[in-house]
């Protein structure tokens, strides 16, 4: 008798908080987490047809792709974009490493477009998403892209936005060329050669 009274009292003392109080605490938690730097995982994709690559992913998707052997400066730049301290992880990056490699080997013609745009300006994102709408195997010009965005005089700004593309290959800035057909520029050590290679892979006549 005494025992069950004790248990009853203990249960009452340990009653859970009300649903309303809990919901308030959860809402405050989500606000706080949204303001915090999200975790970032990265890893190398060795031996691709365009040389070594690095990919970085967050909870929300692909954060960055980097051409080159060294990741140091690239990772520092990602922290400036607002990501948390990066951790190397084969596991968390596995899907993207596989997908990008398969694309570059011509084993698949599609890449998922799930990108974490944190730290990317609205204009740059619009430009890159417009580039993503260019069908595989086709190219467009800086000016045409600027016109599509309703800013016909912004061809140069469009070029800048593409040049600083944080997710090359996945957001295909390589499909944008100069009006005279010149490939103009591209990222990485082999720049324009890589761009030409990607366009040939996709079947664009360049």
């Amino acid at each position: 008798m005494k025992n069950s009274t004790f248990e009853q009292a203990l249960d009452e003392l340990m009653a859970p908080p009300s649903a309303a109080v809990t919901a308030r605490a959860q809402a405050a938690l989500r606000r706080r987490l949204d303001a915090a730097a999200p975790p970032l995982w990265y890893d190398r994709v060795p031996d691709t047809p365009v040389g070594p690559l690095w990919v970085a992913v967050s909870e929300r998707g692909l954060a960055a792709v980097h051409y080159g052997a060294d990741a140091g400066a690239w990772l520092a730049a990602l922290q400036r974009r607002g990501f948390g301290a990066p951790a190397r992880s084969a596991e968390h990056t596995a899907r993207w490493r596989t997908d990008v490699l398969a694309y570059l080997r011509g084993e698949t013609r599609r890449l998922p477009a799930q990108v974490d745009w944190r730290g990317v300006s609205v204009f740059q994102r619009e430009v890159l998403e417009a580039a993503h709408r260019i069908p595989r195997g086709r190219v467009t010009t800086y000016r045409q892209l600027a016109e599509q965005l309703g800013r016909p005089k912004a061809a140069r700004a469009v070029g800048q936005a593409l040049r600083r593309n944080p997710v090359p290959i996945v957001m295909p800035c390589h499909r944008v060329v100069a009006a005279d057909g010149d490939l103009r520029g591209y990222l990485g050590k082999h720049g324009v050669a890589t761009k030409a290679w990607l366009l040939r892979l996709e079947g664009a006549g360049v």
Binding site: P17, R32, L33, P39, L40, G84, A85, A87
Partner: peptide, 20 residues
């Protein structure tokens, strides 16, 4: 409840940073 709410946020922030 106020202390619990603060603690909850701090716990998740730590977890967030350590999760990777």
């Amino acid at each position: 409840a106020g202390d619990a709410q603060d603690c909850l946020q701090e716990a998740y922030l730590r977890a967030y940073r350590a999760y990777p």
